[in-house]
């Protein structure tokens, strides 16, 4: 659905997006994770044909975004939830959606059906005649999502849809995105919320002007944990370890950190080496309560990659 190759955007001397390449398949939820100013919104705007690219190329549904004659076709394929909801406050929720449905050439019967369907799904149907200006932030965000869906786009761009929402509203929005995921909608989600990205996205791209990593949340975690670096096993004993127990660990003892009953050991391959550690400790008289492999979280991956990637 999306193919981007070396996509770059410069504003004067400032490079906002630097040679970004990625692809998003149909039915996939792809998350763009990055700090403020990383180029997430600029990328979405380029892909939505709202701003031009400086170099590189990208295709949406097979249409090249660099070819202006494709812009209307691309815009018809996509729905956009911008970072600012941008509703018409004087118009009712229904009128807002009806206006956009008409601009997207949605047939009257289908438009009516979709407006009712999405407003109902988002819990706004009872408020359909109320002016959008009277809505809470969460309700406005939900209405903006309904607006982006009213013409049943093949691809939905969402630019930080839960930013600035209270936890309850954010959860409602996230749950709705998960509903859309079940319906196999292709979604491109910009976020700086790690938990949100991990829970919703099939794959994640970590952007910091450059795309520093792409993969499933699990792949990214594994990349940091197992990518040549050491991982850690945490052994909880029933009593503080004795010198004999530490000595029994042999060459591993140099990487052991002790804190009360807890031993944290750096291991290259904990799945294989844990049994050796347990054997050694038990033979030295240790009583083990638990053994856990401490793996890197997406947060660790994100922070490491963003710091290494620099920029901003």
């Amino acid at each position: 659905m999306i193919e981007a190759n070396d996509l770059t955007k410069r504003f004067g001397g400032l490079t906002a997006v630097d040679s970004v390449s990625f692809s998003v398949g149909a039915g996939e939820v792809f998350g763009f994770l990055g700090p403020n100013g990383a180029g997430k919104t600029t990328t979405v705007r380029m892909l939505s044909c709202l701003i031009s690219k400086t170099s590189g190329d990208a295709k949406i549904g097979g249409y090249d975004i660099g070819d202006e004659s494709n812009h209307l076709k691309i815009r018809k394929l996509i729905g956009l939830v911008p970072d600012n909801v941008g509703l018409y406050d004087e118009l009712s929720a229904y009128e807002n959606l009806d206006f956009y449905g008409k601009l997207y050439d949605c047939a009257p019967a289908k438009r009516k059906e979709n407006i009712e369907r999405f407003l109902t799904m988002l819990g706004l149907w009872e408020k359909r005649d109320a002016a959008a200006g009277t809505f809470s932030k969460g309700m406005k965000q939900k209405l903006a999502i309904a607006r982006a869906l009213v013409h049943e786009p093949e691809l939905l761009f969402m630019d930080e849809p839960t930013a600035n929402l209270d936890p309850e509203s954010a959860k409602t929005v996230r749950d709705f995105i998960l509903e859309l995921k079940k319906e196999k909608k292709t979604i491109f989600l910009n976020t700086h919320n790690l938990d949100e990205a991990q829970r919703i996205c099939d794959r994640i791209g970590i952007l910091n002007t450059k795309l520093v990593a792409t993969g499933t949340p699990q792949e990214l975690e594994r990349a940091l944990s197992g990518g040549g670096g050491a991982r850690q096993t945490v052994v909880l004993l029933q009593e503080p370890p004795t010198d004999a127990m530490l000595a029994a660990l042999g060459p591993l003892s140099s990487s052991v950190k002790q804190e009360g009953n807890r031993l944290t050991i750096d291991l290259k391959d904990p799945e294989r080496e844990n049994s050796l550690v347990v054997d050694a400790l038990v033979k030295a008289g240790g009583h083990i309560q638990s053994v856990t492999i401490a793996s890197a979280s997406l947060e660790d991956v994100y922070l490491k990659l963003v710091r290494e990637g620099g920029g901003g």
Binding site: S48, L50, L72, K73, R75, K76, I78, L80, P82, N84, V85, G86, L87, Y88, D89, Y100, L103, Y104, D105, A144, R147, A148
Partner: peptide, 14 residues
């Protein structure tokens, strides 16, 4: 100013 221009410009209108 009311931030409604971006969604409008994203529609298939010239």
């Amino acid at each position: 100013v009311e931030k409604s221009l971006e969604p409008l410009l994203a529609t298939p209108t010239t």
